[in-house]
Design a protein around this nucleic acid. Structure first.
Lengths: 341, 341
DNA sequence: AACCATAATCGAAACGTTTCAATTTTTTAA
DNA sequence: TTAAAAAATTGAAACGTTTCGATTATGGTT
């Protein structure tokens, strides 16, 4: 591969002049610039970006780190990040943390291959993130919080979202409620449970609420846990799932048992993924502001890169999206007035 | 940030020894290695990956280039690529060609920031790809073909897929058929049309086939074009759409006009995206082997990197997935024997 | 004690750029 | 003409690694 040296030789000029010419510094005369460009073209010269980055000690690139590139990655979120990055003239790379400490993500986090990162992955240890985050290397964390001066967290108001969803069920007349989630140690899960519980408490329904927390947060586990719920008998009339994926898995399980949603049991999800509106019945769910989340993340990253001081924590509101998976339980037609205690 | 130099100084040892120690060459004695590791830990040393890549002149990284990171990104395809890359100890990066010649994608393609690339993007000019592809920098193209010695194309058998889909409609008794696609100049579109036309020809139905090709290949345009089709009157009974997205847009349009699918008109898509099975009616479609495509792409990329000679072109088979969006037209109940001419 | 083989360490060049400061060339002004 | 100013060009250092070949230290054999 031709290097800048070869171009210099062919154009009969020094290396530095070639560099200036290629980078459009106006120091170099028009005639030599033309000569250099022609030489570069003839040699099919392409600059080595790595060498360039090394010298400049900046990559003008940020990374979006996700657990799995093949996973669901909220198109709207990416769009928000993408647009902000583009407008700042930065490049955006996506990579995954699959593989743990050997993963591409960790490599990029620690080896200064990018100028900053937005992280949406739970499987990267806090210690790794703390070690990677530096003054000149800010990290924006989505749905996650760690103790570190160079890190900013953006969270959605999970507690309030689940509280709102639960109240919606109660308002429709549901009294026997359940929350179905995954591993109870996950902070996100905890927050969601807590919103659920607070609503129950406020309406004097603690004793009627069931909590089912176990395993992963995906469709398969939603399906499996719902089957267990059915097998146990004593089915609640309203269920709040940790997220849409689990809810969709749950609906599938109900269908297989001939239990009608929302006729026999009402279901609410969380996230408002694209599928939620296509699934039958269309899923009532708690919406996260996806685009805004991405845009905010990217915006904050650049603020940090500019050396501006930031809050350590931002919280975004949620909204209830009412579709067709919730209905008043049998014998409870019509809205029931809320009664706080 | 601490560099290898600082570590060397603290450990009281030369730079080269530090490098050897950190890279686990067995040249260095256990005691000094321990001393060096301890010094590195104390300084919170992290190697500069860019400098390392520059010296090694290899990145052990490949890129997946897509038109839009926020676009639909066939999870299964990515999974195939990811698994093969991981098994070879390579890193995988995803970036987009949004922004044309200034895009991250083009930068990565031309500036040797990765060792090779898999490209699933139509908006990168063939000239750019040809210029970027070199002996030591292979490029695998998905759904696209260009004339170049260092480039390999993987295509799905679009022609056969559409032929099969069209025959399925004919077999069910449909006689008045239409193809709805986008910009007729796109090679993919051409291939699909051609399969459609061949089936019509074989069954003596050329004259009953309509072709509607215009605009983009997304849901919105599927919706818009279907509305035009309806407005024109003379509705066909069976429609083959360029892809699932357009078909889903089309079904939406039919619904708004009270035209039943598949009662009044049958619809087939192409791709078998995840949504296809969730949409109502569930979409009959032509499936592409997604995971296999990704795995093959990555596999071929590594073959090329190993210097093995490759076919310039691979073609993958498709399969018809029968769901609920096709039914025999009114007055044509029961299967109609195919009759070739 | 002298020698040799092996192990451990080191110095320096290289990777391909960018950019500062110095030098050379050209232009302008007197 | 010549001096000064401006414009164009250049050499060299630097970015932070890796790695070759050379050097020094360590043991093992006679």
């Amino acid at each position: 591969m031709a290097t800048i040296k070869d171009v210099a030789k062919l154009a009969g000029v020094s290396i530095s002049t070639v560099s200036y010419a290629l980078n459009n510094h106006d120091k170099v005369s028009l005639s030599t610039k033309k000569r250099i460009l022609e030489a570069a073209r003839r040699l099919n010269y392409q600059k080595n970006g790595i060498a360039s980055d090394l010298k400049r000690s900046s990559t003008r690139t940020i990374a979006l780190i996700v657990t799995d590139l093949a996973g669901p990655h909220y198109a709207e979120l990416v769009k928000g990040i993408q647009e902000v990055a583009l407008s700042r003239g930065y490049d955006l790379l996506a990579c995954s943390s699959l593989g743990g400490e050997q993963s591409t993500a960790v490599k990029f986090l620690t080896e200064k291959r990018v100028d900053g990162a937005i992280v949406l992955a739970y499987n990267i240890p806090a210690a790794t993130l703390r070690r990677a985050a530096r003054e000149a290397y800010p990290i924006i964390l989505l749905d996650r919080e760690i103790e570190s001066p160079h890190t900013v967290s953006i969270e959605v108001d999970n507690e309030a979202g689940c509280h709102m969803a639960t109240e919606h069920l109660i308002e429709q007349g549901h009294r026997r409620l359940a929350y179905v989630g995954g591993n109870p140690m996950e902070p996100l899960n905890e927050q969601r449970v807590s919103g659920f519980k607070r609503a129950l408490r406020q309406h004097g329904l603690e004793r009627e609420g069931q909590l089912h927390q176990f395993g992963m947060f995906n469709r398969d586990n939603g399906y499996a846990m719902t089957k267990m719920l059915i097998a146990e008998g004593n089915l609640p009339t309203g269920i709040l799932y940790y997220n849409d994926e689990m809810a969709i898995g749950g609906i599938q399980a109900f269908r297989e048992y001939g239990i009608r949603v929302p006729g026999d049991v009402s279901v609410i999800g969380f996230d408002d993924i694209e599928l939620a509106q296509y699934v039958r019945p269309a899923l009532t769910t708690v919406m996260q502001p996806k685009y805004e989340r991405g845009a905010l993340a990217a915006h904050l990253l650049f603020q940090a890169l500019d050396g501006k001081p930031l809050e350590p924590r931002y919280r975004l509101p949620t909204r209830l999206i009412v579709r067709d998976s919730v209905r008043a339980p049998a014998g409870h037609e019509g809205k029931v007035p809320l009664r706080s205690e």
